[in-house]
């Protein structure tokens, strides 16, 4: 027996983990790894397309990992939206590992994709698509609970996918099936304390994401929206995602978001930008009146 080098062992680890389907799919690569599962790239032999397959790494004795995966697939199946990957199938490998098949997303995580978008309006347009996706889930009674840039994939066409619904809380899911999850830095304080959360926990995470996306030199009006969304107290945040979207739309249209108290000079400047001609007319009028007064007084 020849000696197993470290690289030989690495290859054997991969060989032992490589999912072998009896038929239907040929696994061709690894798309990414999670805490207890790996996402593989595979060819769907019947439909001649590439798919992503999430496979539990090791079946545990009480089946927690498989149950969590199945639950995630069910939630994905319920969320039929262009920003959420569709599930095609789910099953168990001959060696006992649970898996589900989904659309393969060819994209990059949000932080890397955003680095290439220079203009603020482009970044805000991207953020609006994230808002729309999460708002859709909220309307179905599902809170994501682990929103962060690494869980958001941006495709080549600017398409946006909110991934990793494994930690989601669904109002139809029994209490004991709820998973404790979240990522420090993006997790709302009430979630960190292990309390029951609602949509506002996601709004907190979205506020944090917006702050990162807008950048340090973002306009104060945008930062005010981000700050309000990620307020420590849930009651101080926006109650619904639609409110966040409205605020950003106001900003885009040159109106002040309600979360932002505008200094007078900035207000004049904004009004000037928005209503260039009318503002000039008003100014001209004011000046004319002033001149008239002076003249009369003289």
């Amino acid at each position: 027996m020849s000696f197993l080098s470290d690289t030989a062992i690495a290859r054997l680890c991969e060989a032992a983990a490589w999912p072998g389907f009896e038929s239907g799919f040929t696994v061709t690569g690894v798309a990414g790894r999670g805490g207890s599962a790996t996402v593989y790239v595979a060819r769907d032999e019947a439909l001649h397309r590439e798919v992503a397959i999430k496979v539990v790494d090791v079946p545990d004795r009480d089946g927690r990992a498989a149950a969590r995966l199945a639950r995630e697939a069910l939630i994905l199946a319920r969320l039929d939206h262009p920003g959420i990957v569709p599930v095609h199938a789910q099953g168990v490998l001959p060696d006992g590992r649970a898996y589900y098949v989904m659309k393969l997303v060819r994209g990059r995580p949000l932080d890397r994709a955003a680095a290439e978008l220079q203009a603020l309006p482009d970044r805000l347009a991207l953020f609006a698509r994230i808002l729309d996706t999460v708002a859709f889930a909220h309307a179905q009674g599902i809170v994501h609970r682990d929103l962060k840039p690494a869980n958001i994939l941006v495709g080549g066409w600017g398409d946006v996918y909110v991934m990793d619904w494994g930690a989601a809380q669904a109002d139809t899911v029994a209490e004991h099936e709820r998973v404790v999850a979240g990522t420090p830095g993006f997790m709302a304080p009430e979630q960190e304390r292990g309390e029951m959360v609602d949509e506002r926990a996601d709004i907190f995470a979205l506020g944090t994401i917006l702050k990162g996306l807008a950048g340090a030199d973002a306009p104060p009006a945008v930062l005010a929206v981000a700050d309000k969304a990620s307020a420590a107290e849930p009651a101080a945040r926006y109650a619904r995602i639609a409110d966040v979207a409205d605020e950003l739309n106001r900003f885009r249209d040159g109106l002040p978001p309600s979360a932002y108290r505008e200094p007078a000079a900035e207000r004049l400047l904004r009004l000037y930008r928005r209503y260039e001609l009318p503002v000039l007319l008003v100014l001209a009028y004011v000046l004319m009146r002033a001149g008239l007064l002076l003249w009369i007084g003289y």
């Binding site: 680890c13 790996t38 004795r61």
Partner: peptide, 16 residues
């Protein structure tokens, strides 16, 4: 059993 699970996950989950 817990140790077995953790070691198995490391070996077969890309941790080697």
């Amino acid at each position: 059993e817990e140790e077995w699970e953790a070691e198995a996950r490391r070996l077969l989950g890309g941790g080697w």
